[in-house]
Design a protein around this nucleic acid. Structure first.
Lengths: 201, 201
DNA sequence: GGTTGCTCTATCCAAAAGGATAGACCAATA
DNA sequence: TATTGGTCTATCCTTTTGGATAGAGCAACC
């Protein structure tokens, strides 16, 4: 079993590899501090079974880093790891071919069994991550959903109106509807609620 | 040697303790997921030699958590640990009596020697902490960081002013500073940038 | 037919946010 | 000593946002 852990925190990297190598005899863990380093390591070492990619690190740029790795090494198993991830990121990781998502709240023993699961060819999705769409909570109308997309980019009512070919008043109407449904006092709070609830697409 | 590691990421906690216990025979490492849990553990276990506190975790609230621990356990050695190391926070940690600052970019062996150093009664200050000012993207001042925390809750300038006992104008000043540093046009865009960059914790 | 929900627009108004400029204090530093 | 950076405040001003109220078109449904 050969693992490559890509995380810009040397401490996390070393501690993880040390732990895994102790708990799983025969395991070899290699480290990388960026996506670039990971790619170099993968080119040199064709025997790597699983790559664990930190979501927030140099070269990741959202899920671009995952995309890059998947494009160059389409057969490689890749798992994402993150302390704080938005549900849309988790969904995006799986649609881009990741075999697992590892929140850092996982215990070390859970991590080991997750690695076993993924090496066995299964996907690992922890129970507490919310990958669900908007089934729960607020239900938006078509327009509200569109406006919310722009809100999540921090656009002003005027900009949204121009983009959707509406009057500014109408945009305000939908913004108010969104805030009401999310229990938010203003657009900024609405955006944060949306992120927390994983509505952010 | 008894260590208490307070970090809300179970993975980091377990991996670190596993590593330390292997490298330093006789060491006992206890974990806590929040400042509250750490305080409870410290009350029960009077033999703890060193507390390692993650800077970004529930109950920390800047350096308040450190202050709390120092007030209740003035003789305890406390080291801070953090992924992003900003000079003002590091200085603040030392003025509040911390015996060391551990950036997560440290290697695991460096960590072990840092622990030895601190247990021997010396302070541990990594070499690169003063130069690593604007390493990755935005570096906020103390006030900006406080204001950003409220921005991330969708609070208005007036509310923030009341909470921080400032005038509204001053809050606006800091909000503008935050937006400038994040390249955001307004507060909503600023919070989204912060979320995307993983500054929101 | 009538009702309901989504849509769009309009006209008000008040509050909040954003921006510019300027003065002042203090601590650290060159 | 002079300077710089962070902090706080003030006075202007414009733009944006939020909120209320009201009217109208349209499609789905009972």
């Amino acid at each position: 079993m050969r693992l490559l852990i890509a995380d810009d925190h040397g401490l996390v990297r070393d501690a993880l590899s040390s732990h895994i190598e102790r708990q799983a005899p025969g395991a070899v863990v290699v480290g990388a501090a960026s996506v670039d380093e990971a790619v170099v390591a993968l080119r040199q070492d064709k025997a790597i079974d699983l790559l664990i990619l930190d979501l927030r690190m140099p070269g990741m740029n959202g899920l671009d880093g995952l995309q890059r790795v998947r494009t160059e090494f389409p057969l490689l198993k890749v798992a994402l790891m993150s302390g704080l991830a938005r549900p849309d990121e988790i969904r995006g990781a799986f649609t881009r071919g990741a075999v697992g998502f590892l929140p850092k709240t996982l215990s070390a023993t859970e991590l080991l069994s997750a690695i076993q699961t993924m090496l066995a060819g299964e996907r690992f999705i922890p129970a507490d991550v919310n990958t669900a769409d908007t089934a729960d909570g607020a239900s938006f109308t078509r327009r509200e959903r569109e406006v919310l997309d722009y809100l999540l980019q921090g656009r002003s009512n005027k900009e949204i109106a121009r983009s959707l070919e509406l009057e500014e008043v109408t945009v305000k109407l939908h913004v108010r509807g969104i805030c009401r449904k999310l229990g938010a006092k203003n657009r900024t709070q609405a955006v944060m609620r949306a992120v927390e609830m994983g509505i952010a697409s």
